[in-house]
Amino acid sequence: MLTITPFEEELTNDVIELILGIQQREFGLPITAEDQPDLKEIPAFYQAGKGNFWVARVQGDVVGTISLLDIGDGLGALRKMFVHPGHRGADHGVAQSLLKTLFAWCHAQAFTDLYLGTTDRFLAAHRFYEKSGFSTINKNDLPKAFPVMAVDSRFYTYAVQAHQARRARSQGASRTA
């Protein structure tokens, strides 16, 4: 059974192991835990302001993560979205559940726009983000407060309030039909 909960400190090592395993072993990225000090300071880094960090677990095992960094002015940076290879795909629903959790939080916290950066190697992630309503943008179009990682080469944006309004209209139309 899949559960998604806000990050708790006792999960630090499991979260780091999941993320580094994907970055280093699966995609061969030359990145270490030391290159990502935010992973050792998740509460202070992500769970500050209106931000948060969520962990997906199946039978107690950490199988996914997603975070929202509050970068001010109603803007957020989606960061650290990782799903264990054995739990990917629509059949498992981990990525979609993590993203729905983040979207619900963004709406409740009155975020207007989300931004994210990713590596050009995460092709399946690109398709997932695009199917989920994200649009590609140029690096120059990112807000000044957006924290670009050294491995980021592809960037996306998502209009939270616009998508919520469209979703509400479509749900209202389906109820009246």
Rank of each mutant, 00 (worst) to 15 (best):
S97E: 15
D61Y: 06
G133R: 06
G86R: 10
S153I: 06
A168N: 13
G117K: 02
A48S: 14
M149Y: 12
F111M: 04
Q109A: 10
P147C: 04
F103D: 06
Q96D: 11
H92F: 12
F111A: 00
G72E: 01
K50D: 10
P85C: 06
K139V: 09
V151D: 15
E130T: 12
L20R: 09
Q47Y: 01
M1K: 13
D73K: 14
L69I: 07
R175I: 15
C106V: 06
A177Y: 13
A110F: 12
I16L: 03
V160T: 03
R121W: 11
I42L: 06
G117E: 01
P43S: 07
L20A: 03
T3A: 15
L69D: 02
A56D: 02
R127L: 09
V62L: 05
I16Q: 02
P143F: 01
L18C: 00
Y46W: 04
T112G: 10
A56N: 02
V160N: 01
A165S: 08
D70I: 09
S174W: 15
A162I: 11
Q23G: 06
Q23K: 13
L102V: 14
G64M: 07
V15C: 03
N13V: 08
W54H: 05
W54G: 01
A110P: 02
L116W: 00
Q24I: 06
G60T: 02
G89L: 12
G86V: 11
A48G: 10
R57F: 07
D61T: 15
F7L: 03
V63P: 00
D70Q: 06
G60F: 04
F103K: 13
E26P: 01
M81S: 02
A104I: 05
K144M: 12
A95I: 08
S97P: 10
D152M: 08
T32V: 04
D113C: 08
A48W: 04
T12F: 02
E9T: 15
E130M: 12
G93C: 10
R79L: 07
P143N: 10
E34I: 14
L11I: 01
V15E: 02
D120Q: 15
F111V: 07
D14I: 00
N52Q: 12
D152T: 05
Q109G: 04
I4C: 09
L99N: 05
R166A: 15
G72I: 07
W105V: 07
V148P: 07
M81L: 14
S153V: 05
A77G: 03
A56K: 01
S67N: 12
K50M: 09
A159S: 14
G93H: 08
D141W: 05
A168D: 12
M149A: 14
G86P: 09
V15D: 01
F45C: 08
M81D: 00
T101E: 13
R169N: 11
L116M: 01
L11F: 10
G28S: 03
K139R: 14
L102R: 09
G86Q: 12
V63K: 00
T3H: 11
L78T: 05
M1L: 14
E8H: 13
E34M: 09
A77F: 00
